[in-house]
Structures are given as C-alpha cells and as structure tokens.
Amino acid sequence: MTWLAQWAGYLPQMMSGLGVSLLIAGISIAAGYPLGLALSMMVSAKNLAVRTLGLAVVEIGRGAPALVILYLFYYGLPKFGIAFESITAACLALTWNAAAYSSEIMRAGIQSVARGQTEASNALGISQRDTFFRVVMPQGMRSAIPGLMGVAIQMFQGTSLAYAIAVPELMKSAYNIGSQDFNYLQIFALAGICYAVISMPATWITVFFEKRLARHA
C-alpha cells in the first residue's frame, strides 16, 4: 500500500519525463524512417559513391552503440563549434540509429518482393520510378511493418540513454526523485512499469500485425 501511495506521489513528475521520452522517440522515428528509406535506396544504388556513402552511414549507425553516437553529438561536435542542446543531440543520435536499423529492414522487405512484379511492370512500360514507388515499395513496406514496429519499440526504450546527457526524460526523472528520498527500488520499479506500459501493448500490436499480414500473404 505504501508503494502505491508513493508511486501516486511520484507520478506527476514521472509523467513529464515519460512525455519527453515519447517526444524523443516520436521525433527519431518520424525522421529516422524516411531517412532509412533513403539509405536503403542508396545502399542498393548503382552509383558506387552513393552506395558507399549509404553503407557507411548504415554500418556506423548499426555498428556503434547509440550511447557512443549520443556522446559524439553532445560532447564531440562542440569541438568543431557545433553545439546542440541535450534534447536535440538525443534526437539526432537516435534518428541516426533508427535510420540505420530501419533501412536494413526496408531493404530486406523491398528485396523480398518477387522479381515477377518488376518484370510485369517493365513489360507494361511503366517507368522505373513508378515501378519502384508504386509497385515494389508498397509491397516491400508491407512485409517490413512488423520489423519497423520492433525498431520503434527499441527506439522508445533507447531514449533512456539520453539520461546520460541530462535530458529530463523518464530515467532522469526517476533518478532525480530517487536522489531526494533514496527510495530507489520503488522509483526504478515504477520507471520500469512506465516503459513496459508503452512497450508491451506496442509488442502486442506488432504481433497482431504479423498475424494479419501472414494471413493475407
């Protein structure tokens, strides 16, 4: 009972932290997925320079831990006179992360589209551009949806890293509360529940979509 009472007291401050976490996740997903699509196209491009650049961005984004990229943006770039606010740095780093991971998922989805689709479109005289954007991509994206939703959940949980550069997100709120009255167990348990309350339904939705797509495949 005491825990519930304590939690109720913590909740307002935790909610503002959760809001910041959701905002960062939302921005990095909204910006990361279109960038991911662009990267997936670059990686499959004929032009070697374009392909190499795309590969480099994707491999760094996937190969380096998000925390390293976060630190590079926040602590590293000021060396070149580029300074960001902590929340901006967090959004940028996680956007890169989201773009890199989503690009590979989209590329796999696009590659899974049967070759006959492109051939039929070519045989009809439909332009390369329309063939990609209207025939191949919509089908590829369909099979990429579950994976992309997985990345979205991962991004939301990844916002906890922003704690390390003092962004007032959920973890930071929890830590602040904990450092006032030292009820770390209660407060971090509550933080865990806050993350789970968002992530678990999102996972269920993903599973639902996977089943639906499998049924119509």
Partner: peptide
Amino acid sequence: AALRRSVGMVFQSFNLFPHMTALKNVSFP
C-alpha cells in the same frame, strides 16, 4: 517504354500487383 507500349505480355505466374484491386491492376498502367 515506346517499344513496350506496343507489346503486351502475359506471364506464367500472372504477376498481378497484389496490393491493387483487379480494376486498379488494369487501370494503373
């Protein structure tokens, strides 16, 4: 495109666009 416009092709595996209705399949091109 000009060449392919005058030549129609039908495949063994149909290759209809699965994300479009039958009508859209015929209208879109």
